[in-house]
Write a protein that binds this DNA or RNA. Structure first.
Length: 427
RNA sequence: GUGGGUGUAGCUCAGUCGGUUAGAGCGCCGGAUUGUGGUUCCGGAGGUCGCCGGUUCAAUUCCGGUCAUCCACCCCA
């Protein structure tokens, strides 16, 4: 058997204590913030029928999934995302539920893709959704949760920012420029990639694939390149179709301003999001330095639940993964140290006192107090070293002299101060 | 899936222009007379130099493959 046989699968992580502490630090913040906004946690199975995902995303998704046939010849997949499961769980249950529904989840998700920085084959993802509310208030609420999640971890306006747009607004603007409705999806796809594509190539595609002439393509590109809300207002605000969409965006941005989150948010018409199912306001959160891939992405998907077999329900939500976020936190030194801690470490001087130590430990542990001691006879010096390693707040020294008097020495490990206490206070 | 970089101790890295017993720091274990930790001093364990093959008298070093990892593309959670 070679060592390789038992190596981790590529893209999967072990979590030794120092890493698990970090993971729980992140997941803890997510849960804490979710609760502050009144969201309730749900979960589903990590293994699902393959069709659950094919249905929504088509056959090509299969190549990116961890999937196989189980012993009952069922085609199954490790869940790559949570939304289809959410749709099923809501099923007809939602009919008896008060709207809007505020649910969140922290599933481990899987994807069969080549790993690289910020992208593994497995990650934990914070999913927050508001279901059953089509008003812009739900959109604002959801992005506010995402930003507060990051703030809870110590990230501020200097570290991260959200770029927001609205597909309905972009659609109205493109229509005003002269893009036919049937070409809108193509135009969205080009705009989605416009930042990672050479300018002349984007311009060429706008002409050949979207059907714009030279001047239209150029002005479209410039509008997007500036990306600002003022440019849209100045150029198209007078049109009714665009004006209605602008009004919603103003309300959205105004809400976030009122929530004290305005400094995190930038309007940017280039944010489209790759997934086809978004229908309204969309956003992505990035590190300010622009060194990492998106930390979080989300938006409104009013047709999705219906698409995966549920009832038609307006919905808005986001997903935030622990991998990119973890990298950003490490980069900003926002990683909590692994600090073992027990309340007491009992130093036993003379093995005849070991059972006394056990009795004290029993009493204290039953009270909820943490106690540790050396598991075999050791020099006192060793025991103190171990107490230090264990993160003991205080050491209880059971020495022959004090025990004979019915006492023990309590040493405060931080200050070094020592005092005597009667044994009966400890037992 | 495609192209490229990297691979020496648990970690961070030296080093070998091909040559006999491969090093450091940190960490870990033990010791400095079973009554006091974080400092210090002494000692020790731990590497088939990622794996397989080729060239060679000789490979950790050169070459090929493979695996892992990183970067870009693809794709997006």
């Amino acid at each position: 058997m070679s060592k390789q046989t038992f190596a981790r699968l590529p893209g999967f992580r072990d979590f030794p204590p120092e890493d698990l502490v970090f993971r729980e630090h992140i997941l803890g913040a997510w849960r804490r913030v979710s609760a502050k906004y009144g969201f309730q946690e749900y979960d589903g199975p990590p293994l699902e029928p393959l069709d659950l995902y094919v249905e929504k995303s088509g056959e090509e998704i299969v190549g990116q999934l961890y999937h196989f046939q189980d012993k009952g010849d069922r085609n199954v997949a490790l869940r790559p995302e949570m939304t289809p499961s959410l749709a099923r769980i809501l099923g007809d249950r939602h009919r008896s539920m008060a709207k809007p529904i505020r649910w969140f989840s922290v599933p481990q998700l899987f994807r069969y893709e080549r790993q690289q920085k910020g992208r593994l084959r497995e990650h934990f993802q914070w999913n927050v959704d508001v279901i059953g509310e089509e008003g812009v208030g739900a959109d604002a609420e959801v992005i506010a949760v995402a930003l507060d999640g990051l703030r809870d971890l110590g990230l501020e306006q200097d570290d991260v920012h959200a770029r927001v747009s609205d597909r309905r607004l972009l659609g109205a603007v493109l229509s005003a420029i002269g893009v036919e409705d049937t070409r809108l999806p193509t135009a969205f796809a080009i705009i989605d990639k416009i930042e990672r594509t050479p300018a002349d190539q984007s311009l060429a595609r706008l002409r050949t694939e979207v059907g714009l002439d030279e001047a239209q393509a150029r002005s479209t590109f410039e509008l997007l390149d500036q990306g600002g809300l003022d440019g849209v207002k100045g150029g198209f605000g007078h049109l009714d179709a665009v004006g209605a969409e602008l009004e919603r965006m103003d309300q959205y941005l105004g809400s976030l301003e009122a929530m004290g989150l305005g400094g995190f948010v930038d309007f940017d018409l280039r944010i489209v999001r790759g997934l086809a199912y978004y229908t309204g306001i969309v956003f992505e959160i990035f590190d300010r330095k622009g060194e990492l891939r998106a930390i979080c992405g989300g938006g409104r998907y009013d047709n999705l639940l219906e698409l995966v077999g549920g009832d038609p329900l307006p919905a808005v939500g986001f997903g935030m993964g622990d991998v990119v976020l973890g990298e950003l936190l490490r980069d900003r030194d926002l990683v909590p140290p692994l600090e073992p801690h027990v309340d007491y470490f009992i130093v036993i001087i003379g093995e005849e006192h070991r059972e006394l130590a056990y009795a004290i430990a029993r009493t204290q542990r039953d009270k909820g107090v943490g106690v540790q001691y050396a598991l075999r006879e050791q020099p006192v010096r060793k025991q103190f070293t171990a107490a230090g390693n264990a993160g003991a707040r205080e050491v209880i020294v059971l020495g022959p002299d004090e025990v004979a008097r019915g006492c023990a020495v309590l040493r405060d490990m931080a200050s070094g101060e020592e005092r005597e206490v009667p044994l009966k206070e400890l037992q």
